[in-house]
Design a protein around this nucleic acid. Structure first.
Lengths: 342, 342
DNA sequence: CTGAAAGCGCTTACAG
DNA sequence: CTGAAAGCGCTTACAG
């Protein structure tokens, strides 16, 4: 019914706002208002425009809107892994927090790589995001510079920042590492091993906590550490259990830097006929769903992933909107889950 | 050094292509070419523009590019879950397949909901995507209509389409369900239960396979099915094991529609002192990492998630580029992993 | 190989 | 509350 600008050479063929305005018998900019700022327009016009939108099946062009308004409504989220349940739960929290808003969430998987992080950031910056949600506090020099010059609102997730100017939501990874080690010491263990993989910043903070606790108790021994940079998997946990036992045969307890590793270590113990926790105590970190169900159930540290995502997104939105949030450092804490394995 | 159009009221303040061209002493469109179509420009100019880009720290504005070129370079991916490892592996494959291209991947989590799928699609259509990667073959009427009118290239993932015009990459869920059931029958089991959750289309196809195999063997019995629509979790597997045993106490083997459920069922058996597989055989579906390591290790169906994502993305790219792919139906098959639990 | 001009589809001050 | 015009930052035929 409506004469759209079909003749024009470069038209995409899609229904435009102009066509909607035409159909509703109003000016383009009035149609724009009726859609984007409904309360700036009379009820009658709003209805007419809404009807035209429905009848024509109008879909706004986000690129045009972004270009004209200088607002992309894009939020970039960078996580180090998508196969790690920890981060998919963080994403779930972000998604829920931002559900009602019209944000486009751009999810980037850095794969625990600084180079990949830089690359993704470079690409995503082209979308002119309104804000960034980053995992962790440490970034390469070049990324730091990019972030600084971008002037964009940023909220860091997972660990607490020591810089008050840098909003962060998470918990102290090192305190959690300390607490778990202390728990094992209090159980009477002296020879407590630490198994770690990936060696990302969170793992290293947990290692710091472990080392501090061991040192405070006068139990430090480099032989008790098995740390490799390979990705964490159940299979690797099984293998590292073997390495630990070869390296420190008198080991009484093992603190695995995450649950995957702990699960693998426990399965391997079962295959070798090592009773957990009687002969060897094993504990993990993160409290993945299987940890409560395995036999033995796994002693671990419960971490508020979902809430980290939710609160970080909420905080970022506030900052984007120019509000002055009461707190920009949100420590969500952790919970030691004492179960059967240690 | 360069005079940008700072005075203009609505300028974003970011470095523009015009500024780069200025800096390099060429026309804007030449700078555009040097960046987007380097081979259409002389080496000398290319170098000058490249230098200007570096010196000014120019970041292209994707919205402007999309608007002017009528190409968003956006690919929308819709998955039903981000907490299910199956789909994060699919995403990994997609990411790897498209890594070298300049596509922006928009990941949407439909949470197994038709309404959410429609909502996400509505939002993502605003970005004028070049193509869609969808999970599954069935969609609500309204989504079907949206997809049809959009005329966009679409590749369906996970199961095979019966419609040759609809490109799909995956494997036959029903055949896999049939094969696993047949395996249990061949092991000599008669009373074979089926436990399912979520009841998404893949689960229902596996159920079809189960039912067909049972019927072909003359073993059908509705009492042997326990199906609930709650999300699949280990905890639910543990619970449904109990229900199955209450409903069909003579059950000899249980086919769980996925590994999470199977793990929960096995852990529950261990707690109840039911020997697996001696007293009760239990098998799963998908071969999650834990299945190979648990004790007993879990008999299950290995599925090519990563490759599904990889091949689907590769196929979609070909279609977007207007190529005529030799095959638009790519059956990647499945592998029955016979282990200890069944 | 290089350039001047128009246009992509929206929104934003500025008027009325 | 409503509208005419300019502009967002880029790319695309069309010339030369």
């Amino acid at each position: 019914m409506t004469k759209t600008l079909q003749g024009k050479s470069r038209s995409s063929g899609r229904i435009t706002l102009a066509a909607v305005a035409d159909h509703a018998g109003v000016a383009t900019m009035t149609a724009s208002r009726a859609i984007s700022h409904p309360n700036m327009v009379s009820q009658a016009l709003r209805d007419r425009v809404d009807r035209a939108v429905a009848e024509l099946g109008y879909v706004p062009n986000r690129a045009a809107r972004a270009l004209a308004s200088a607002h992309s409504n894009v939020i970039v989220v960078l996580v180090p892994s998508l196969s790690n349940a920890v981060f998919t739960e963080v994403l779930g929290g972000i998604q829920d927090a931002l559900d009602a808003d019209d944000y486009q969430i751009l999810i980037g998987n850095t794969r625990y790589s600084d180079a990949e992080e830089e690359k993704l950031l470079n690409i995503y910056m082209q979308s002119n995001p309104d804000g960034l949600l980053l995992s962790g506090l440490t970034h390469s020099k070049r990324v730091q510079k990019m972030l600084a010059t971008s002037q964009l609102p940023i909220v860091s997730m997972m660990d607490m920042s020591s810089d008050p100017a840098q909003p962060s939501v998470g918990f102290s990874q090192s305190q959690a590492g300390y607490a778990m080690t202390r728990y094992l010491i209090d159980k009477g263990h002296r020879r407590i091993g630490f198994i770690a993989a990936q060696l990302d910043e969170r793992t290293m903070r947990r290692a710091e906590g472990y080392r501090q606790a061991m040192q405070d108790a006068g139990l430090s021994d480099a032989k008790l550490e098995v740390m490799v940079s390979d990705p964490s998997t159940i299979a690797l946990g099984a293998e590292l259990l073997g390495r630990m036992l070869a390296q420190a045969p008198d080991c009484e307890a093992i603190f695995c830097c995450n649950d995957d590793l702990a699960h693998g270590a426990i399965y391997q113990c079962q295959r070798r006929g090592i009773a957990v926790p009687q002969q060897l105590a094993v504990c993990g970190f993160n409290d993945l769903p299987a940890s409560a169900w395995m036999n033995p159930s796994v002693t671990t540290v419960g971490t508020p992933r979902y809430r980290i995502g939710y609160e970080a997104a909420t905080l970022l939105r506030a900052v984007i909107k120019g509000e002055q949030p009461a707190r920009t450092q949100i420590d969500l804490g952790f919970t030691l889950m004492a179960r059967e394995s240690a």
